Simulated scan of single mutants.
Amino acid sequence: MKLSILDQSPVSEGSTPAEALRQTALLAREAERLGYHRFWVAEHHAAPGLAGSSPEVLMAHLAAVTSAIRIGSGAVLLPHYSAFKVAENFRVLEALYPGRIDLGIGRAAGGGALAAKALQDTRVTIDDVDRYEQQIQELIAYLYEFEGGASPQRYAGLRATPAVDSAPEIWLLGSSRESAALSARLGTGYAFARFIAGNGGAEVVHEYQDSFAPSVAAASPKPLLAVFAVCAETSAEADRLAASMDLSLVAWRGNTSLPRPRP
C-alpha cells in the first residue's frame, strides 16, 4: 500500500490565503522527504477557508519545488471547463515534469451556485453538466493520442498541444457506486472520497475492481481511498487538533467556509 497526501490548502484563523499556499508547498516538500507517493491539491471556489482555487497553477509551483513525488489535482472540476483546455493544461505540465503528473477529475460544483454560474459563463446551455461522461472520453482521447486514442468525434482532427509522448495518469474522484461504475467503464483510476461518504467504501471499490475495463488510460484497476487524518505525538493531542477540523466540517455542511479555527 502506498501513502499519499491530498491538501486542501486550508486558511488558518489569523493567517492569510498566501500563507496557506506557502504551507502547502512546505508540506509537499516534507511529504517527498518522508517518501510519500503522491501529493494532490484541491479546487474550491469562493471559499474563504480554502486557498486552492486553481490546482493546475499550484501544481506547477509544487512540481518545481519538489523533484520526484507525483503531483496532482484532487480534483479539476471538469463540468466547469472545456475538456480540450484541461487536456492542454495538463500536457504542458506533463511536458515540464514528465512522469510526475496526475489528473484527478470530479463533477462537484466546488462552490456555491453563483460561483458555478460564473465559471460556466461562456457555456451555451446548462445541459453541459450532463456531458460529464462524454467530457471524460474526450479528455482521454486528447491526452492519449500517441497510444492510438482518436480525437473526439465532435472535433475530428483536433490535436491537443504541446505534442508530448507521455500523459498524466487520469483518476476519477467520486463517493458513490455511480462514479465507481463510470470509472470502471471508462478505464481510469478511481479515488473514493471516504472523507465525504462515510459508508460503503469497501463495497464500492470492489465493484470498481470487478467491473474494470482496460483502456489506453489504464491497463488494470487503480483504486485509491481518501480519508481525513490528524497526526500528533499522542492520541490526546491529535484529538485536540481534530477539534478544529470538526468545527470546520460543521460549518462546511452548513454551506459556510470559514478560516480553520484554532483548537
Rank of each mutant, 00 (worst) to 15 (best):
M1P: 03
L3C: 13
L3G: 07
P10C: 03
V11W: 00
E13Y: 00
S15C: 09
T16P: 06
A20D: 00
L21N: 02
R22L: 07
R22E: 07
Q23A: 11
A25K: 13
L34S: 11
L34P: 03
G35F: 10
Y36Q: 08
F39C: 04
A47D: 00
S54A: 15
L58I: 00
V65E: 07
V65G: 07
A68E: 15
I69T: 06
G72R: 10
S73C: 12
H80M: 13
Y81C: 11
S82K: 07
A83R: 06
F90A: 06
R91L: 08
R91M: 03
V92C: 09
L93V: 03
Y97C: 12
I101L: 02
I101F: 01
G104H: 00
A113F: 13
L114E: 15
A115E: 05
D121A: 15
I126C: 15
Q135C: 04
I140R: 13
L143I: 04
L143N: 11
Y144G: 06
E145Y: 04
G149C: 13
A160L: 02
A160I: 02
P162H: 05
A167R: 09
W171E: 00
L173K: 05
R177E: 12
R177Q: 14
L182E: 04
S183I: 14
L186V: 03
L186D: 10
T188K: 07
R194D: 13
I196W: 05
A197M: 10
G198K: 14
G198A: 14
V205C: 09
E207V: 02
D210S: 15
S211Q: 15
A213G: 10
A213T: 15
A218S: 14
L225M: 15
A229K: 01
A236L: 05
A242C: 11
S244D: 01
A251K: 01
A251F: 00
R253A: 01
L258S: 08
